[in-house]
Design a protein around this nucleic acid. Sequence first.
DNA 1: AATGTTACGAACTAGATAGTTAATTAACGT
DNA 2: ACGTTAATTAACTATCTAGTTCGTAACATT
Lengths: 222, 222
Amino acid sequence: MTSPPVASERQRDADRTRAEILEVAQREFARRGYAGARVDEIAELMRTTKRMIYYYFGSKERLYIAVLEKAYTEVREAERLVDVEHLAPVEAIRTLAELTFDHHDAHREFIKLVAIENIHRAEHIRKSEVLANLGTPVLDLIGRILDAGTASGDFATEADAIDVHMMISSFCFFRVSNQHTFGALFGRDMTAPEHRARLRRMVGETVVAYLRGAGSPERPPR
Amino acid sequence: MTSPPVASERQRDADRTRAEILEVAQREFARRGYAGARVDEIAELMRTTKRMIYYYFGSKERLYIAVLEKAYTEVREAERLVDVEHLAPVEAIRTLAELTFDHHDAHREFIKLVAIENIHRAEHIRKSEVLANLGTPVLDLIGRILDAGTASGDFATEADAIDVHMMISSFCFFRVSNQHTFGALFGRDMTAPEHRARLRRMVGETVVAYLRGAGSPERPPR
DNA sequence: AATGTTACGAACTAGATAGTTAATTAACGT
DNA sequence: ACGTTAATTAACTATCTAGTTCGTAACATT
């Protein structure tokens, strides 16, 4: 006659505890960096104890890797939902750039984790079997858009998919990752709402302009 | 009859010791991040002792701030030497972009420091009186190039100097700062020699293409 | 040469920090 | 109802780490 235990009512719930540790840990690692984050601090910020971190993850490093794996996996999920192939090449690449912009805008904690991981020369990513083999479907998508654009004559620049991806990512990533030093030096918070729409348009226009071939010195823009 | 003390022979040399501490500290902070760097480690890597760090800099944080101040100041010195105003607008902005690329390519340790400082929300930069008021002459330079380009009709896009600076910086900075995660995920080291020239050309072409207005949807490229 | 000042070194300390031990309790299958 | 196992807690420890104490040696000044 007792009601079946609902997740939120249960006093012991491995999944819940594990998930909460990951959530809090992600926030702390993103805020303080890997070395700066404190296992005790993470423990205090949740309802369970430090022992649970070691029970489920074994070490600070393995917890950090688990955080990275979760964050990257979620981001890949979002990427899979991008659908721009019904658009003409120019609009397809412009829209992809703008969606990438939105995506970076919405996942700032993830960006911090990536920045932190780069400071550590990606040593943790390389230790993760999950992440080491995580190719990205975005590259294929860009490749197809580039092919279509070249075939249609819209794109004059012979571009490489990885390069184009880097160009789009760099703009979107930098705006968020370097907001603080940039803000301190130039007195402008690039992530403030009043700059958002303009910079969003800018990425799209930049990729399109580049691919159309307007930047090359030999061949003047058509 | 005793020979005058030469810098290298002297057993005590405040300037030298101070400089060596800064050098080693910069390397260590760039390698391990602020929290990850160890004062003892820095001390072991030089000929003097940990006591000297506290003698000259007072605390780990003040040492770190001193490292930032030195690094930023040196970079500003290099920026002052950029001279592209004798060129026509298109070539001026292209050259500026390419020089910025070279600059980032040559100062990777500085880039790491900036990335680290962003993880700490630029709190140390803000504590430094030297850095807080360090405007940049590059912005004025870009502003003048943009004005000239608009006046001559070469640039159709009404761009903002800070935005253009951000676009150039983001590409150059990201290539270096994110080389490790990017390499791990896409299997390409963007900082490898074989990609250098191509990507260098790419920044220049991208800014020029954008400023010519080739990316806008309303107005087709001229 | 005497004296004061600046630069330096070895050893030490208090507190922080990752990781552990071992006992305890809730859930679940039978 | 009951034994088994998975989940959880509190208290503990070894080590590390930023910062200090105190004494000394080199240089400058007179």
